[in-house]
Design a binder for these strands. Structure first.
Lengths: 150, 150
DNA sequence: AATGAAATGATAGCATT
DNA sequence: AATGCTATCATTTCATT
């Protein structure tokens, strides 16, 4: 991982569909070595893949909420059961386990408030080992999935 | 936006570098109409772009924290000043403004605890109009930037 | 480890149904 | 709106420095 690799990653973060030809020019390398480096970054697990970025609003997904979850005291199994069930809810687009309270922080995206209500009642409330659920509406996505600082 | 457009978006969310040739096969269309649809989705703002997904750990970014921010009472200017300053901190990879307390929820990524400490003291604490800052360490990223539910 | 060249494959525009 | 065709451009492999 040298300076050139970082340049490659920075460019591909900005435009994941850059042609290797164009990428090579931007990082100041000729085609083949640039190509080899991209492959190497993919193989080594630094470059996990490429994804299209969609506009949730344009797809009718206009509602977002943060959900705070505290679990009941339990063993490793309780945690695993909760996480496994969580992963099956596609509207949960981000989830992190924290140190301390709350135990989890979820970001949920739905079409509208009523879809969220249903999701809350039918899927979130019934997740295993939950002691406490709180949710707050997102007013504005100020920064969304920013490029990693290289 | 019909069923075929949704299929196209689903495929491109999974693999943003799919060739139009391969994409056309997967969605059951021939090359040219598939190509036209992708362009149309880009122009219409549904498809915002394409990005490489990086592995933060493999890049030495092993530390993550959630930061809860409450602002002092203030006018629109205060909010704008805060958000403008926030956007200049590259380690803040996600930020949402909420309804109610806290006002903002930030996700911050740094190399390690000491880098976070510096960031906290030098950049986060000095953001304008902040009344209260609380932070919690992320133990595990359970779900990371999941594909949108189509 | 980078370069250049050459075969294979993808893209994008256009004419047709 | 979808298809098929074609010229242009990109990718990928291999031989060379």
């Amino acid at each position: 991982m040298d300076r050139t690799d970082r340049k490659i990653l920075a460019e591909l973060q900005k435009d994941g569909r850059l042609s290797v030809t164009e990428l090579a020019e931007r990082v100041g390398l000729s085609l083949s070595p640039c190509h080899r480096r991209v492959r190497a970054l993919e193989e080594s697990g630094v470059l996990l893949g490429y994804r299209a970025q969609l506009n949730p609003g344009a797809l009718g997904l206009n509602f977002s909420a943060m959900v705070f979850v505290t679990l009941r005291e339990g063993d490793r199994r309780a945690v695993e059961a909760f996480e496994t069930a969580l992963i099956d809810i596609p509207q949960v687009v981000d989830a992190q386990r924290l140190f301390g309270e709350p135990d989890y922080l979820l970001q949920v995206i739905t079409q509208d408030l009523s879809a969220f209500q249903r999701l809350y009642d039918e899927s979130l409330s019934t997740l295993p080992n939950v002691q406490r659920l709180t949710s707050t509406l997102v007013m504005k996505q100020v920064i969304q999935n920013r490029l990693l600082p290289l």
